[in-house]
Design a protein around this nucleic acid. Structure first.
Lengths: 186, 186
DNA sequence: CCATCTGGCTAATGGTAGTAGCTTTAAAGC
DNA sequence: GCTTTAAAGCTACTACCATTAGCCAGATGG
């Protein structure tokens, strides 16, 4: 009975690989166990169960996107930063379409996910700072960015766009229209 | 052994009710059978299986939204029609948030769902007719409408907006910005 | 009244998550 | 280096799910 040397993070990694290869619906403890070379009940030594594994995957995905966000925003500000953030969002989804379906939509209301969600929020708030929006207007502005990014990403990752050409053009038009709706900043 | 008098549509109706009450993840043949007062295998006399039941639910939801679309567009044109369509979309999702998660994202590529999807598309194309867009620009325009409507709807129905106030305002801003990006029409 | 078809049923299979309890490995303490 | 012990595997089991096979009763039609 040689040991597999698993850990919580190794199990999460295997789960992400299962999702990447077979879709989020195929994330099952049996599949993860098989990939880890272990019997299914053994996973309970590292993970509380399927539900907890799913939130752990959510944390992982949220943090991956957060890393890309932080990198994209670095050294930019204003419209330049917004454009970079929006393209970082889409680039992540295009690179890992199945993984995107595992990203929680409502991280701020979940204690395990909140910090990862707040991190993304702060990057966006920083990018919007030059506009000096009042709090209410900032809420609307962030919501609108999120609608565009998530709406486009979820449709694209789910194969919702029938005609594959010119997707980049559509996305750029959306971003440009959004930026045009913001007040001018100094 | 009195008969329950089921039919395919009655089973689909029960499935929709299960979704409305307990969410799309709770759609299981066992739950539908219980609601119909029938043993689970009996459902196979009316429905091919769980997968087929899900696509039937998708057809139902798509058609319900299509009905609202057609009603909203009736007697309107131009920006007025677009605004009515967008609000009809959101109104449906607010009325049936769980059901929205059962709406297929990619109906046109599925033979059973294509006609219901095409019906919605045609309503939107008709509403856009006054602008006389060339085909490529029409594709981008419809995509952008879809991104806004679906992005907002999927976030709202999944509880993705943390602050509940002013959602209508956010949505109106999105629509107004979109309309502002269209060329003027006669 | 009888034949047939349909819509229900029970029984059984295989896959899923999760629990209980055992065994072995590997590290910690002496 | 030996013993102890905690962790990490395992098997066996339960409960629930979808699905198939085959049976039986009720409705239908001659």
């Amino acid at each position: 009975m040689p040991r597999a040397g698993l850990s919580t993070q190794a199990v999460v990694q295997a789960a992400v690989e299962v999702i990447d290869e077979h879709g989020v619906a195929a994330l099952t403890l049996a599949a993860v166990a098989a990939r880890c070379g272990v019997a299914a009940p053994s996973l309970y030594k590292h993970v509380g169960g399927l539900a907890e594994l799913k939130t752990q995957v959510g944390v992982r995905v949220l943090n991956e996107l957060g890393d890309r966000f932080a990198a994209a925003a670095m050294g930019r500000s204003g419209a330049d930063a917004i454009i970079a953030l929006m393209h970082a969002y889409r680039a992540y989804v295009v690179a890992h379409p199945a993984r995107y379906a595992a990203m929680p939509v409502d991280p701020l209301h979940h204690p395990e996910l909140a910090s990862a969600g707040i991190r993304q929020l702060e990057v966006i708030q920083a990018a919007l700072r030059p506009w000096r929006l009042d709090p209410a207007e900032q809420v609307h502005t962030i919501r609108k960015l999120r609608v565009i990014a998530h709406g486009f990403a979820s449709l694209e990752s789910a194969g919702g766009f029938g005609l594959p050409e010119d997707l980049e053009e559509t996305y750029q038009q959306l971003i440009a229209t959004f930026l045009g709706s913001l007040p001018a900043h100094p």
